[in-house]
Amino acid sequence: MSKLKELMLIFRKQNIRIEDGLTKNEIQELENLYHVTFPKEWIDFYSQLLPIGVDFYNWRDRSVENIQFIKEVFLQPYEDVLACYEEIEWNSIWGEEPQNLQDKWVKINSLLEKAARLIPIYGHRYLPIMETTAPVLSIHDIDIICYGENLLDYFFVEFGLKKQKDIRFEQVVHVPFWMDELY
């Protein structure tokens, strides 16, 4: 059985509705709507199926409320990091540590502007937009944890088909800033 079919069975057992995947036109509309270019692995997955349920984002729902909600979820990790900037331990790879909190906020904001954009996947799990296959990150405030080597692997971890401790962290692609140990 393919991994995708195995995952679909788990979704159904957990009462997660599965709709037909997004069409090329729908994906292009979403990219325009959210000012994003979805990575290949996101397109590959969501063009095959669209899971809808608690903590999943309904990419097909074009209601004003849903669009606004998803836009806010796109911004949440950036806002969380800036809200907690005083708690962030400075990482030497970011350059010289600012001497005051205002300069620290400015520098962290600058790093965030250069950081990979994040696509909400499920709850506070995000897929960084990168040219290579990216890990899925769990981001809550400045608590950032790798939750899967890639999108499909993440779903296996999230829904109990794989344990997080079994992630092959040595093979996980590093996501600058987001995986630079902020705490």
Rank of each mutant, 00 (worst) to 15 (best):
I27A: 00
Q28N: 12
E31G: 01
N32G: 03
Y34E: 02
Y34W: 02
H35R: 14
H35Y: 13
V36D: 01
V36S: 01
V36N: 03
K40N: 14
E41G: 13
Y46C: 02
Y46D: 03
Y46K: 10
S47V: 08
Q48S: 15
L49F: 15
L50A: 02
G53R: 09
G53H: 11
V54A: 00
F56N: 04
Y57A: 09
Y57D: 10
Y57S: 10
N58S: 10
N58F: 07
R60E: 04
R60H: 06
D61E: 14
D61S: 11
D61W: 09
V64C: 09
V64F: 13
E65P: 04
N66I: 10
N66C: 10
Q68I: 06
Q68K: 11
F69M: 12
F74N: 00
L75I: 10
Y78S: 09
E79K: 15
D80G: 06
V81Y: 00
V81W: 00
A83N: 08
C84S: 03
E86Y: 04
E86P: 01
E87S: 09
I88E: 08
I88R: 06
W90S: 05
W94I: 05
W94F: 14
G95N: 05
E96H: 12
E96M: 12
P98D: 13
Q99H: 13
Q99P: 00
N100W: 07
Q102R: 08
D103N: 11
K104V: 11
W105R: 13
N109R: 13
N109F: 12
S110G: 15
S110K: 14
S110Y: 14
L111N: 14
L112I: 13
L112H: 07
E113S: 14
E113G: 12
E113A: 14
K114D: 05
A116L: 11
I119H: 01
P120G: 02
Y122V: 02
G123E: 04
R125I: 07
Y126R: 01
P128A: 10
P128H: 04
I129C: 02
E131A: 09
E131I: 07
T132Y: 05
T132W: 05
T132S: 11
A134T: 02
P135T: 04
S138K: 08
I139T: 00
I142K: 12
I142H: 09
D143G: 04
I144H: 08
I145G: 07
Y147K: 11
G148D: 03
G148L: 04
N150C: 12
L152R: 02
L152E: 08
L152P: 03
F156N: 03
V157E: 01
F159W: 12
L161N: 01
K163V: 04
K163E: 15
I167Q: 14
R168E: 15
R168D: 15
F169C: 02
